[in-house]
Amino acid sequence: MSARLDDGVRPGEIVLEHASRAFSVRADRGRSLKELLIGRARAGGPPPVEALKDVSLRIEPGETVGIVGRNGAGKSSTLRVLSGIVPLNSGRVACGGQVVAQLELGAGFGRDFSGRENIFLNGALHGLVKEQIEERMAAIVEFSELDDFIDAPVATYSSGMFLRLGFAIAAHLDADVLLIDEVLAVGDEAFQRKCEARIAEQIAAGATLVLVSHDAALIERTCRRVVVLDGGRKIFDGPVGEGMPFYHRLMGTPEEVAAP
């Protein structure tokens, strides 16, 4: 049940070769027919932003990689490219096996549907069938700590409950590759610890992790390798012990403050 049709990568392996991607920055993202008919007549306006410039990256199955950088460095774009949601302008991307992207917890929840109904819908979005979701239902409900609220419409949930449900679903999907974008800063501390523990379990089971976060301590706890992006380029790739000091120097943060 591979979520991607990729040539020659093993489950859990990630390959990014000379990847480039630009985004146009326009308020109305769709084009109008007028523009199409007149041609690209609309001059002016900001030029496209190059979110990724010639980035190459090879991640072996089971590696844990943190991606850090300033706002707009291309971290989230990297994850969107790796998850296959956004195509590259040039270069090659491949992600082997079942890829679970947690870019926004609870994206696509039907607000009028109960938590339980959303578990079925969300599981289906990841390619699971009914029986597979039913098997995991009890574990997901327990993990989410929603108890009786699981049968209430998610529109009635607090934002914490919403996110807990989103994480609980994603955490039970048998990922070969986990792509996580700054979603662990959800819920209270106890729930965060539980999420981290769950991710550690998945890594122990052989999953590859790519984590985007501004939380240096989290990266240091979770990842052994770190990639620093700046202006869409990879400027550091190596062990977390060297990468985080490099990142702190880049950001102008005193290292002692962030050191554990």
Binding site: S83, G84, I85, V99, L103, A107, G108, L125, H126, G127
Partner: peptide, 9 residues
Amino acid sequence: GALVRKARF
């Protein structure tokens, strides 16, 4: 849109 932007299916 929320689904199309954030999930792959």
